[in-house]
Design a protein around this nucleic acid. Structure first.
Lengths: 215, 215
DNA sequence: AATGGTTTGTGATAATTGTCACATAGTTAT
DNA sequence: ATAACTATGTGACAATTATCACAAACCATT
């Protein structure tokens, strides 16, 4: 049972009746850093809304290549779980906990019911879609139109912003994986950024100095 | 005023009351082949649902490069116009009529109202999101994971299927534009496909013979 | 301090794609 | 029929990215 006042803080726009129903019908699940919340190909049985922590969403193809798509933050939901859930569907994305994550699962029937009953829920769901859609467009833009150097800078910016730190605790190999590139390419591009004073490289982490430099 | 029985055919799942409201509150707009229904950067004032014809949706960046995203068919809606419309928003995509197109525009307030009032409308909107989301994922997959030869084959397949013909009436330069590649690259790849007997090339068109060959 | 594992650096080379220059072949209008 | 235009073919070359091989640096454990 979820404390209603906690929900109220995270979702100030929700009607009291909706918050009450959420507390009653949703259950909380906890994940640890690195846990997979969802794997490509697994069934989706409920919608998920993040309470705390960060969730990283990746597209993964059959052969194991993956591509970073976007982060889901507290107070946001997984768009895929919301639509897919409708028709007992298979996930096309994988989601990974970054740090410890708490989330609530919303049963499918409640999902539908609230949609027609509570305007704030409907707006929440639609807003979620819009946000994800826009993020996917940005991702597509970068893959379609930009070279790896720009994509790397964007990747670093994004992560610095979402992780709320200028230290990105990833290895070159990990970053290469999420950009569907190879470790050597990323290492070389990193070196260029470091030479221009935009980052500092340490083992297992990248320190961001200034990525907006127009030198 | 739209004839209700025409709507009923296209949307068999909609409640009679909803069909009646649609006929009353929506207006029909017609476009000719090549017309832009929506341009990147323009405001969205209403949601659009296609009655007849095909609509091609492209992502275009600031410098004029573009990338083909998906087709919208009769009985389907533009997901972007549905969410963006909510908050007087700017389109991130451009949409072009392929052949003559008839569509209905749904006022924003009705959009919201029906969402909570008619279950069939809610399911329609959610289905639209899901479909577009999946199509965008497929597009992203190809750009991120596939080489140009595979992307070209997929492009040809997709268009053949949606245009319901095995003659694709595009020039190499047009196809190159929609795949954000260059004319020469597409010409050379086309030649390879032709050499393998998968297509036949004529001026201004590509005839598809068999794109599934695993020779 | 020595060992083994992981991370990063780097040169050589290949594969893919983009770009330029120009040739050739159809099409259209005069 | 000729000129002008558009579409396509092609060689040469550049840029970007991928791949391989191996070296060097760093870390943890014993």
């Amino acid at each position: 049972m979820i404390p209603e006042n906690e929900l109220k803080e995270l979702f100030p726009s929700f009607e009291p009746a909706l918050l009450h129903e959420m507390a009653q019908h949703c259950s909380v699940r906890s994940f640890q850093d690195g846990d997979m919340l969802m794997k490509t190909g697994s069934y989706i049985r409920s919608s998920m809304v993040i309470l705390s922590g960060l969730v990283k969403v990746l597209r993964a193809d059959e052969e194991g290549s993956e591509y970073f798509m976007y982060y889901i933050e507290p107070g946001q939901a997984c768009a895929l779980s919301m639509t897919c859930a409708n028709k007992q569907n298979i996930s096309e994305l994988s989601a990974k906990a970054v740090g410890d994550v708490e989330l609530i699962t919303v049963p499918l029937d409640k999902m539908d019911q609230w949609m027609m009953q509570y305007k704030s829920w409907y707006q929440f769901v639609l807003g979620t879609y819009r946000k994800r859609f826009e993020e996917m467009l940005t991702t597509l833009d970068h893959v379609a139109f930009r070279n790896m150097d720009e994509r790397l800078v964007f990747y670093l910016k994004q992560h610095s912003q979402k992780l709320k730190t200028n230290i990105i605790p990833y290895t070159h190999a990990e970053i290469a994986g999420e950009l569907n590139s190879s470790r050597e390419v990323i290492s070389r591009l990193m070196k260029k950024l470091a030479d221009r004073g935009m980052i500092k490289m340490n083992r297992n982490e990248i320190e961001i100095i200034n990525l907006d430099s127009v030198l």
